[in-house]
Design a binder for these strands. Structure first.
Length: 203
DNA sequence: GACAAGATTAGCT
DNA sequence: GCTAATCTTGTCT
Protein backbone atom coordinates (compact mmCIF):
# COMPACT_ATOMS: atom_id res chain seq x y z
CA UNK A 1 0.00 0.00 0.00
CA UNK A 2 1.93 2.94 -1.13
CA UNK A 3 -0.66 5.68 -1.54
CA UNK A 4 2.08 8.03 -2.59
CA UNK A 5 1.78 10.69 -5.22
CA UNK A 6 4.57 11.97 -7.37
CA UNK A 7 7.43 13.66 -5.53
CA UNK A 8 7.32 17.40 -5.08
CA UNK A 9 9.20 19.05 -7.91
CA UNK A 10 11.84 21.75 -7.86
CA UNK A 11 9.27 24.49 -8.31
CA UNK A 12 7.79 23.83 -4.88
CA UNK A 13 11.06 24.69 -3.17
CA UNK A 14 11.69 27.92 -5.06
CA UNK A 15 8.87 29.93 -3.48
CA UNK A 16 8.57 31.87 -0.26
CA UNK A 17 10.41 30.20 2.61
CA UNK A 18 7.80 30.79 5.30
CA UNK A 19 5.06 29.54 3.01
CA UNK A 20 7.05 26.40 2.20
CA UNK A 21 7.70 25.77 5.90
CA UNK A 22 3.93 25.75 6.48
CA UNK A 23 3.12 23.75 3.38
CA UNK A 24 5.61 21.02 4.25
CA UNK A 25 3.50 20.12 7.28
CA UNK A 26 1.52 16.98 6.56
CA UNK A 27 3.73 16.06 3.60
CA UNK A 28 5.49 12.71 3.45
CA UNK A 29 9.26 12.43 3.40
CA UNK A 30 10.42 9.23 1.71
CA UNK A 31 13.87 7.71 1.90
CA UNK A 32 15.03 4.66 -0.01
CA UNK A 33 17.32 2.92 2.40
CA UNK A 34 18.98 0.06 0.57
CA UNK A 35 16.21 -2.48 0.06
CA UNK A 36 13.97 -0.70 2.48
CA UNK A 37 11.74 2.33 2.32
CA UNK A 38 11.33 4.76 5.16
CA UNK A 39 8.40 7.14 5.30
CA UNK A 40 7.41 9.82 7.73
CA UNK A 41 4.86 12.61 7.87
CA UNK A 42 6.38 16.01 8.52
CA UNK A 43 4.79 17.49 11.62
CA UNK A 44 7.19 20.25 12.64
CA UNK A 45 9.43 22.69 10.75
CA UNK A 46 11.38 25.87 11.30
CA UNK A 47 12.23 28.54 8.76
CA UNK A 48 15.60 30.27 8.53
CA UNK A 49 15.84 33.40 6.44
CA UNK A 50 19.35 34.25 5.31
CA UNK A 51 18.74 37.90 4.66
CA UNK A 52 17.44 39.21 7.98
CA UNK A 53 17.65 36.30 10.39
CA UNK A 54 20.61 36.33 12.81
CA UNK A 55 19.93 32.69 13.71
CA UNK A 56 20.47 31.53 10.15
CA UNK A 57 23.89 30.08 9.43
CA UNK A 58 23.96 32.10 6.23
CA UNK A 59 23.23 35.42 7.94
CA UNK A 60 25.77 37.96 6.73
CA UNK A 61 28.44 35.35 6.27
CA UNK A 62 29.36 33.17 3.39
CA UNK A 63 31.49 30.31 4.67
CA UNK A 64 32.31 26.78 3.62
CA UNK A 65 29.47 25.45 5.73
CA UNK A 66 26.82 28.03 4.91
CA UNK A 67 27.56 28.07 1.18
CA UNK A 68 25.06 25.22 0.78
CA UNK A 69 22.31 27.56 1.89
CA UNK A 70 22.92 29.73 -1.16
CA UNK A 71 22.24 26.87 -3.53
CA UNK A 72 18.90 26.76 -5.31
CA UNK A 73 15.80 25.54 -3.49
CA UNK A 74 15.55 21.78 -3.03
CA UNK A 75 19.16 21.31 -2.01
CA UNK A 76 19.71 19.38 1.21
CA UNK A 77 21.71 20.98 4.00
CA UNK A 78 22.78 18.61 6.75
CA UNK A 79 25.01 19.87 9.50
CA UNK A 80 26.60 18.59 12.65
CA UNK A 81 26.03 20.08 16.10
CA UNK A 82 27.03 19.44 19.69
CA UNK A 83 29.50 16.76 18.71
CA UNK A 84 26.88 14.09 18.19
CA UNK A 85 23.92 15.24 16.24
CA UNK A 86 22.79 16.08 12.74
CA UNK A 87 20.09 18.49 11.64
CA UNK A 88 18.36 18.12 8.31
CA UNK A 89 17.39 21.20 6.29
CA UNK A 90 15.97 21.84 2.87
CA UNK A 91 17.25 24.93 1.10
CA UNK A 92 14.42 27.11 -0.20
CA UNK A 93 14.04 30.03 -2.55
CA UNK A 94 16.07 30.97 -5.55
CA UNK A 95 19.80 30.51 -5.77
CA UNK A 96 21.66 33.02 -3.64
CA UNK A 97 19.02 33.77 -0.98
CA UNK A 98 20.46 31.74 1.91
CA UNK A 99 17.07 30.49 3.12
CA UNK A 100 16.27 27.03 4.45
CA UNK A 101 13.63 25.04 6.29
CA UNK A 102 14.66 22.76 9.14
CA UNK A 103 12.74 19.50 9.58
CA UNK A 104 12.29 19.22 13.33
CA UNK A 105 9.99 16.23 13.67
CA UNK A 106 8.11 13.62 11.65
CA UNK A 107 5.55 10.96 12.39
CA UNK A 108 6.91 7.50 11.40
CA UNK A 109 4.75 5.79 8.80
CA UNK A 110 6.85 3.03 7.28
CA UNK A 111 10.10 1.27 8.13
CA UNK A 112 9.44 1.39 11.86
CA UNK A 113 11.66 -1.60 12.60
CA UNK A 114 14.66 0.02 10.94
CA UNK A 115 14.08 3.23 12.83
CA UNK A 116 13.87 1.34 16.10
CA UNK A 117 17.19 -0.36 15.36
CA UNK A 118 18.80 3.00 14.74
CA UNK A 119 17.26 4.54 17.85
CA UNK A 120 17.92 2.01 20.61
CA UNK A 121 17.42 4.78 23.18
CA UNK A 122 13.84 5.39 22.11
CA UNK A 123 11.43 3.88 24.59
CA UNK A 124 8.42 4.22 22.33
CA UNK A 125 7.42 5.13 18.81
CA UNK A 126 7.01 8.76 19.68
CA UNK A 127 10.64 9.06 20.73
CA UNK A 128 11.86 7.68 17.40
CA UNK A 129 11.51 10.94 15.55
CA UNK A 130 10.26 13.71 17.86
CA UNK A 131 13.30 15.92 17.47
CA UNK A 132 15.50 17.17 14.63
CA UNK A 133 18.45 14.91 15.41
CA UNK A 134 16.27 11.98 16.39
CA UNK A 135 14.65 12.18 13.00
CA UNK A 136 18.08 12.19 11.35
CA UNK A 137 19.19 9.14 13.30
CA UNK A 138 16.01 7.20 12.62
CA UNK A 139 16.20 7.93 8.90
CA UNK A 140 19.95 7.37 8.70
CA UNK A 141 20.61 10.91 7.49
CA UNK A 142 24.12 12.18 8.01
CA UNK A 143 26.72 14.46 6.50
CA UNK A 144 26.82 12.40 3.31
CA UNK A 145 23.47 13.89 2.35
CA UNK A 146 24.75 17.44 2.53
CA UNK A 147 24.39 19.12 -0.86
CA UNK A 148 22.24 16.27 -2.16
CA UNK A 149 18.93 17.02 -3.77
CA UNK A 150 15.51 16.52 -2.14
CA UNK A 151 14.01 15.89 -5.56
CA UNK A 152 16.25 12.87 -6.15
CA UNK A 153 15.29 9.22 -6.35
CA UNK A 154 16.67 8.11 -2.99
CA UNK A 155 15.09 10.82 -0.93
CA UNK A 156 12.12 13.00 -1.75
CA UNK A 157 8.90 14.50 -0.43
CA UNK A 158 5.38 13.74 -1.62
CA UNK A 159 1.87 14.81 -0.81
CA UNK A 160 -0.30 12.34 1.08
CA UNK A 161 -2.86 10.49 -1.03
CA UNK A 162 -5.63 11.83 1.17
CA UNK A 163 -5.58 15.39 2.30
CA UNK A 164 -5.83 15.35 6.04
CA UNK A 165 -7.36 18.12 8.03
CA UNK A 166 -5.16 19.61 10.68
CA UNK A 167 -4.51 22.93 12.32
CA UNK A 168 -1.19 24.64 11.88
CA UNK A 169 0.25 26.48 14.84
CA UNK A 170 3.35 28.60 15.06
CA UNK A 171 5.72 29.64 17.80
CA UNK A 172 9.14 31.00 18.46
CA UNK A 173 11.97 28.77 17.40
CA UNK A 174 13.77 26.47 19.77
CA UNK A 175 17.31 26.20 21.01
CA UNK A 176 18.53 29.55 19.75
CA UNK A 177 20.25 32.44 21.46
CA UNK A 178 19.67 34.89 18.66
CA UNK A 179 16.69 35.61 16.48
CA UNK A 180 14.37 34.16 19.11
CA UNK A 181 11.71 36.74 18.43
CA UNK A 182 10.77 35.45 15.00
CA UNK A 183 7.76 33.08 15.14
CA UNK A 184 9.24 30.89 12.42
CA UNK A 185 8.46 27.52 13.93
CA UNK A 186 5.44 25.70 12.51
CA UNK A 187 3.83 22.48 13.67
CA UNK A 188 0.66 20.44 13.43
CA UNK A 189 -1.49 21.21 16.40
CA UNK A 190 -2.13 18.32 18.78
CA UNK A 191 0.14 15.92 16.91
CA UNK A 192 1.95 13.84 19.50
CA UNK A 193 5.15 13.63 17.46
CA UNK A 194 5.74 17.35 17.71
CA UNK A 195 8.59 18.02 20.14
CA UNK A 196 7.33 18.74 23.60
CA UNK A 197 8.61 22.09 24.67
CA UNK A 198 7.75 25.06 26.78
CA UNK A 199 7.22 27.07 23.61
CA UNK A 200 4.50 24.74 22.36
CA UNK A 201 1.87 27.35 22.98
CA UNK A 202 0.53 29.02 19.89
CA UNK A 203 1.52 32.60 19.32
C1' DG B 1 47.52 26.51 15.74
C1' DA B 2 44.20 27.44 19.58
C1' DC B 3 39.73 28.52 21.44
C1' DA B 4 34.76 29.33 22.09
C1' DA B 5 30.09 28.36 20.76
C1' DG B 6 26.43 25.67 19.02
C1' DA B 7 19.16 25.00 14.99
C1' DT B 8 20.42 18.73 20.78
C1' DT B 9 19.78 14.72 23.50
C1' DA B 10 19.85 11.81 27.43
C1' DG B 11 20.24 11.12 32.08
C1' DC B 12 20.05 12.64 36.70
C1' DT B 13 17.99 15.47 40.73
C1' DG C 1 13.79 21.07 35.37
C1' DC C 2 18.93 21.22 34.82
C1' DT C 3 23.37 19.99 33.00
C1' DA C 4 27.09 17.23 30.93
C1' DA C 5 28.67 15.09 26.76
C1' DT C 6 31.05 15.79 22.47
C1' DC C 7 33.43 17.63 18.03
C1' DT C 8 32.89 20.50 13.86
C1' DT C 9 33.08 25.00 12.26
C1' DG C 10 34.39 29.74 12.28
C1' DT C 11 37.21 33.29 14.12
C1' DC C 12 41.12 35.10 16.12
C1' DT C 13 46.19 35.14 17.00
Amino acid sequence: MTNINKPLQRKFFLGDTLKIARELLGKIIVKHDGKNILKGKIVETEAYIGEHDPACHAFQKFTDRSSVLYEKGGTIYVYFVYGNYFCFNIVTGKEGTGDAVLIRAVEPLEGLEIMKNRRPKAKNTRELTNGPSKFCMAFGLDGKFNRNDITGKDIYITSPAKREKFEIASSKRIGLNVGVDFPYRFFIKNNEFVTKHKFNNTI
